[in-house]
Amino acid sequence: MNPKDYEQLQTQLSPKTPILKNVLKAFLVGGIICTIGQAITFFYMANFDFTERTAGNPTVSTMIFIAMLLTGFGLYKKLGQFGGAGSAVPVTGFGNAVISAAIEHKTEGFVLGVGGNIFKLAGSVIVFGVVSAFLVALIKLILVTIGVTDW
């Protein structure tokens, strides 16, 4: 049997990814997390001196705090198994990636373990975010400078 025939055989016998089911679960879980975020935003707007725009920052911090509790008590991985991208894409998923790595590497000490590995999973998100933001701003600056567009 060659690898090509084998690929066919194993694909036939392996369970298919239930895409529709996964998408529905991601929609549900992601939607609920964002709705909770909306409630927290309203809370900060009602009780503190925040506007719709500025309430984003404390909302994100609060969501990551909740992610810490869920991760620490071993619940976020259960949510992740059910929700897939629904729990990975919201900022709580970013928090979970950072916090789970921090907790995991505690045994190697706080400097080499926690400090050195905290961005092991989430680091690529920061790197690609920063590089793409740099390029976006650079391109826009060039376009404005040569007069193609304005700010």
Binding site: S14, P15, T17, N22, T71, G72, G74, Y76, K77, K78, L79, G80, Q81, G83, G84, A85, S87, A88, G93, N96, A97, I99, S100, A101, I103, E104, H105, K120, L121
Partner: peptide, 17 residues
């Protein structure tokens, strides 16, 4: 798990396989 895949408490979705 922490060595071959992800931290134990990371919420990644595993397939049925």
């Amino acid at each position: 798990e922490r060595q071959f895949r992800y931290p134990v408490d990371y919420g990644g979705q595993k397939p049925a396989t």
